[in-house]
Design a binder for these strands. Structure first.
Lengths: 340, 340
DNA sequence: CTGAAAGCGCTTACAG
DNA sequence: CTGAAAGCGCTTACAG
């Protein structure tokens, strides 16, 4: 049927060991033999059978990519892009990325993703907020993993982080420098460390410029649930009710910002004339809202790529100390924050 | 290390053959032995090693899922949902779905997805419009595949189709029954058979109700490029320029419809007061546009599930004749089509 | 009803 | 520099 290593060996008049060596670029093979074997491999378009190779090496050649069901299904295109970044990076080493979701009430004894149940991955990437029991499970099973845009306070796990603090700081400073004085924060889930950091950036930017109303709390609406359009809409409406002087908003992410836009409109105010707005993430939709959303661009593909690289290093050097890699962000000025 | 079939056999005092039989529910094993083995498997939480099993059976346990790069990266959440549907379905048989993208100028000799290069899948699902050379390649290599929401005219391949015709027909009829008389069509890529069918539905609904202006062509703007917001915006603006009497629009899909919304607004008309609008697909964003988009809901998870099932049947029964399965759609009335 | 044996296609010490 | 051999963990006829 399909051509095997034996076929190559026969054709080249060598043993399969030698073929294997050139396949894996290991040991030392005489240049002539190597060349001959290479040629035959190319001619026959031979590829070693994954499962055979994996069985022999005891590796799987797979990485898992896990996210909450909600994060995948919602308007949120964020993590899909991160996945794509990983997938691109994985092509180089012929790794496969197995994408799956995990439901809200996740229980490791019940609904472990099947690639974990079967130990079919060499490592896994966890995107965004994921159930802590899942993280504990991986840690306990000593399965290499990296957190993406998430962390467990007090724990030192491998992770890829976004430069949330600086991004937020810059967004808010941008609003301030364009003359805004009463800048609100609208956000959700302080469970999520990223949101927390963005909030910190917001506060410190205000502080730097002496704009800390309300005892340094600014005007903030933070509902401790998953971020969404609806909390954006609801949040800004409540804030405007109470503080009609608000003239700018920094929203914890773009999805929420889109809700903020409707909220502001419903309160009969204009963006950016009456109120300027900055989001965070630069999701694809940000470019298509009316008015177009100014935001902090998070390089999603880059994050995925970095996650892959870290994971790959991790399995090469199992003893590597846990590390955090921070991905920097860019400011994207569109319509919601233009000065006039 | 990890527990193997040998461990189970030893503990149960039987041969590995017997363990294998109960693992695969094959042959006949005495109820007592079977029970004993089962218990031990559970106690030790044993799972057969994928690669070993795959090597022995000559199957891969994987299906591929391929789409255009553009379809994955854009605002388009459509095919991601289809993928998720497949992923859900695949859990039952412990199949893995390997998701990858393929670039515009795809050439099978150069950038074959790695799971195809390595023959690491038992079959593949192709989502939406994909490069024809890819389809030819699969067909030629006799790799089972199913087209999702796409087809090659004149060819009889396995495919999962959306009931585009009836969906479009119903959308347009809905507009007509709410009193609209001048109904435009805005769309793109007639390469894509789905769009073609939707257009046909549009025309026949008009015809049925005697509304066939312009010799039965209605008012239509169809630019032969990939659908997008921008063609929606541009399309309706051009049409309104020419036919100010237009009082309703059926858009070939939601993404385009979102562009239509901006276009209508830029022409200083109101939706739905001046102009009613229907989309197609029910992408997540449809619910969040202002005003909220009326549309035809395509059950995306369902499509993925159906694609999986067909693929699975295909590998069980390799001689199966190619077939088409049609997934029906629902009408979702939101704000853009309300009578007033 | 169950076991011994061959085989799936590769990798990796180990000799030489 | 290269080959013979063992082994990776499973499945599957084939006997009995």
């Amino acid at each position: 049927m399909a051509t095997t290593i034996k076929d190559i060996a026969d054709k080249a008049g060598v043993s399969i060991s030698t073929v294997s060596l050139v396949l894996n670029q290991k040991g030392y093979v005489a240049p002539v033999t190597k060349k001959k074997i290479q040629t035959i491999i190319n001619d026959l378009n031979y590829r070693p059978l994954h499962s055979a190779r994996k069985l022999a090496t005891r590796q799987t050649g797979n990485f898992g990519f896990i996210l909450w069901e909600g994060h995948f299904s919602e308007v949120e295109m964020f993590y899909s892009q991160v996945f794509l970044g990983m997938e691109y990076a994985a092509r180089k080493n012929d790794y496969y990325i197995l994408l799956t979701t995990v439901r809200e009430g996740f229980d490791p004894r019940e609904d472990l993703p099947r690639f974990l149940r079967y130990k079919d991955v060499d490592g896994v990437a966890l995107a965004g907020r994921v159930p802590e029991p899942l993280i504990r499970y991986l840690d306990h099973q000593q399965i290499p993993f990296v957190l993406i845009d998430y962390e467990i306070p007090g724990e030192n796990f491998n992770c890829i982080k976004i430069d949330n603090y600086n991004g937020a700081f810059r967004a808010v400073e941008n609003l301030i420098l364009s003359g805004r004085k009463h800048i609100a924060f609208v956000g959700g889930t302080f469970f999520h460390p990223s949101i927390k950091e963005r909030y910190r950036g917001y506060r410190e930017a205000l502080e730097k410029h002496g704009l800390n109303h309300n005892n340094g709390n600014g005007y903030s609406y933070c509902e401790n649930i998953e971020t969404s359009r609806s909390i954006g809409e609801k949040g800004i409406m409540q804030l405007l009710e109470k503080y009609p002087e608000i003239d700018a908003i920094f929203s914890c992410n773009d999805t929420t910002a889109l809700g903020v836009i409707s909220g502001v409109h419903r309160m009969k105010k204009k963006i950016p004339q009456d109120i300027a707005l900055f989001g965070f993430d630069d999701i694809p939709t940000a470019e298509f809202s009316t008015p177009k959303l100014s935001t902090i661009r998070v390089p999603k593909l880059e994050i995925g790529k970095e996650a892959y690289k870290l994971l790959y290093e991790l399995i090469q050097h199992p003893k590597m100390a846990p590390q955090t890699r921070i991905i920097s962000v860019d400011t994207v000025i569109r319509e919601t924050s233009s000065s006039e």
